[in-house]
Amino acid sequence: MNDIDKIMNAIKLAQNLKMELRHSWLSNGRQESVAEHTWRMAFMAMLVAPYIKNINQEKLIKMIIIHDLVEAIAGDTPAFNTLHETEAKIQKEQMEFEAALKIKNILPQKIGEEIFNLWLEFEKKETYEAKVANALDKLEVQIQHNEANISTWLEIEYEMVYKMSKHVNFDSFLNQLKDIVEKEGEEKMIESGIEVEKYKNI
């Protein structure tokens, strides 16, 4: 198979992200796709990059574009499914690693290796770009929850409003953004009669 056919196969595979639904709902009551989440994360990266020192914006946006690509094969697993379940987390990681290898092997070697390495870097969350991408991932998810009707939230998502700090505390601008997102989530819960204090220190 020549390179252009391999590239076309990967493009067709990526359509799955348009059809793979997340446990997030839009403000109009429609369920969100993985592709929509990824798009807004990339847009957020473009907007915040000027305020983050020493960030490689091209690498950051590439990493975001492919960070959930494995879900085209493995499907989406909501974060709360693995929050307190070690076995479920290990299983998810294994499924996604195998999917990443499949995607790598679908593509021409050089492109496949770049995508695979970017995905691994995101998963390890050790480099600066990976940390920023991870922070934007968590922030975008909460922003989307804040925009949705609170009837779509599970109780564990009340708790997750207060779990963003560890993902953003390395950067002051992202921390300020987190404070706004957290405040909006908290206000949404209070308006719905939820006792927020019991969820703050879980």
Rank of each mutant, 00 (worst) to 15 (best):
T86M: 10
L107M: 08
E182Y: 04
H67P: 07
A14N: 03
D179V: 11
Y162A: 11
L83F: 14
A100H: 02
T77D: 02
I61D: 04
V196S: 01
P50S: 01
I90Q: 06
V181R: 03
Q109A: 13
Y158A: 01
S33F: 11
N54I: 13
S172F: 04
I194N: 00
K89R: 07
K163N: 09
I115N: 02
Y162N: 09
Y158L: 07
I106M: 15
L154P: 03
T82W: 04
K92D: 06
H37I: 13
I103A: 01
F122L: 11
H23V: 10
N117V: 13
E113G: 04
M189G: 02
P50F: 05
Q31F: 08
H67D: 02
L139Q: 03
V141I: 13
E140S: 04
T82R: 04
H37F: 10
F80P: 01
E71V: 14
N201W: 08
I156G: 02
F43W: 11
K59C: 06
A45Q: 01
K12V: 13
N146D: 05
E36W: 03
K6L: 05
A49W: 05
A49F: 06
K110S: 12
K92Y: 08
I4Q: 07
M95T: 07
M189T: 08
W153E: 02
V70T: 14
M164C: 10
T127V: 09
A74F: 07
I202W: 07
E93C: 06
K198G: 12
T152W: 05
Q57R: 00
F80V: 12
I66V: 15
K125A: 08
D5I: 13
A135I: 13
S33T: 15
I202M: 08
K131D: 12
E129P: 10
E121V: 08
A88L: 14
W119E: 04
I180A: 02
K53A: 11
A14Y: 05
D171V: 09
E197W: 03
V168D: 01
F116K: 02
K198C: 10
A135N: 03
G193C: 12
L26R: 05
I202S: 06
I7Q: 03
L154I: 10
K104L: 14
I55F: 03
I111Y: 00
W119K: 00
E129I: 08
S165G: 07
M189I: 12
E191Y: 07
E71T: 15
L101C: 12
F97A: 03
I143S: 01
R22E: 04
L174P: 00
N134L: 10
N2W: 08
D76K: 10
A148G: 04
Q109M: 13
K6R: 05
L21P: 00
V141F: 04
K53D: 12
A135K: 00
K110N: 11
E32Y: 09
M164L: 15
K104P: 15
Q94N: 14
Q144E: 08
L101S: 03
I103S: 00
M19N: 12
E184L: 13
E123S: 06
K104Q: 15
D137E: 06
Y128A: 06
K178N: 09
H37P: 09
